[in-house]
Structure formats: C-alpha cells, structure tokens
C-alpha cells in the first residue's frame, strides 16, 4: 500500500496565524522557518542541535539557537511565542511528555506532528517482512536512526488525556494524500501522520 507523500510543512503553514511569533524545535536547515517567514511574515526562531544545520540556518538569515531540546527550554521565558513547532522531531525526544508541557509554557500553542506507527501499511510491512518499516525509522538503519519513539495515534491521545493538554485543532493525513480536519474512523489504522495544535487546558 503506497501513500502519496504529504509535506506536513504546508499543513503547519496553514494552521499558523500571520505575523505570529514562532519557535521551531529541531528546525534542521531552517526551510520550514524560511517559508513561514516569507509567506506568513512570522517572527521566527529555530532551535537545532546540529552545528552544521545551525550554520545553514545562519546562511538563510534565520535566528537560530544551538541547543539540545531534550535539556528543556529554560532559555525562554513563559509565553514568549504564539506557536512552538515540533515537526518530525517528537520521535527522537527522550522526554516527550515534559517537552510538550515546556512547549506550552513558552508558547500559547504547540504544533506537533506525529507519525502513526499503527498505520495499516506499517502493520502490513512488519507482518509480512518481520522488519520495521523504513519510514518509521526515518529511512535509517536501526543502528543509525535517531528515532527512539514509536508512537501510535491512540497511544498519543491517551497520553494527552492524562496530561491536561487539549487538542484544539488537528489535521489527519490519510492514505492517497488526503487531509482531514476530523478524526477519521479507525484513526489508529488509517492515519499516516497527523498534525496537532495543542493548547493547555485552562
């Protein structure tokens, strides 16, 4: 079962208010931030652990902070940002639970992408080959991948329910590249990836 690859960057972009203050955690070479600045005129800051990536961000004229987000976001004060983005990064975080709470401390909203390990194609791949789906490990072998978390949709919902964090908006990427705002039936089986706008429950 092949699915059309959907770039969650565009989904994230559509969920962000223009001219807002954005912190992008694990911003990589800064391409998401650059397009948010260009198209949404946001005031953006990136956080990145890799020195080479930091250098690339600087070349793009971005404001970037070299740090390990697993060590917390203590550098930033409460409510500094409107959105704190965690795109394709949740899976490499050692303390994801604490991080999401930290994101909601420094920002009004958190935008988190979750790649669904429970997705049908992943299950079939694992069932038939007895091996992990390459996409889940970001296409790196087990001994090289930085991915340490394999998250299923349902498990993610459960964790949020316990944490006092509310999903105020969601975009579900389903097979063949469609994106829905409503949670599909059997989401744990049919969602490839999802983007959540999280807010702290008042």
């Amino acid at each position: 079962m092949k699915h059309t690859h959907i770039d969650t960057s565009l989904i994230i972009e559509s969920m962000i208010e223009p001219q807002s203050r954005v912190l992008d955690l694990g911003c990589g070479d800064g391409s998401l931030l650059s397009s948010l600045i260009a198209r949404k005129r946001v005031e953006g800051t990136g956080v990145e652990i890799s020195h080479d990536m930091v250098a690339s961000c600087l070349a793009k004229g971005l404001c970037v902070f070299q740090a390990d987000i697993d060590k917390g976001l203590s550098h930033w004060e409460d409510a500094t940002f409107d959105y704190v983005i965690l795109k394709s990064t949740l899976e490499v975080i050692h303390r994801p639970y604490e991080l999401i709470l930290e994101m909601l401390r420094v920002g009004r909203h958190a935008l988190v992408t979750v790649s669904n390990f429970g997705y049908l194609a992943n299950r079939i791949h694992t069932l038939l080959t007895g091996r992990m789906t390459p996409r889940i490990r970001a296409f790196s072998p087990w001994y090289e991948t930085s991915v340490i978390r394999y998250v299923c949709m349902d498990e993610f919902f459960e964790a949020l329910r316990r944490s006092g964090v509310r999903i105020s908006e969601a975009r579900y990427v389903t097979p063949f590249g469609s994106v829905s705002r409503k949670k599909p039936l059997f989401a744990n089986l049919f969602v490839v990836e999802a983007v959540f706008l999280l807010t702290r429950t008042p």
């Binding site: 800051t45 020195h51 930091v54 250098a55 961000c57 600087l58 971005l62 404001c63 970037v64 902070f65 070299q66 740090a67």
Partner: peptide, 9 residues
C-alpha cells in the same frame, strides 16, 4: 534583537 547562538565543538 534577533540573536542567534552557536557552539563550536
């Protein structure tokens, strides 16, 4: 100020 921070190993 838009300040960037980099660490050289």
């Amino acid at each position: 100020v838009a300040v960037s921070y980099a660490e050289i190993a």
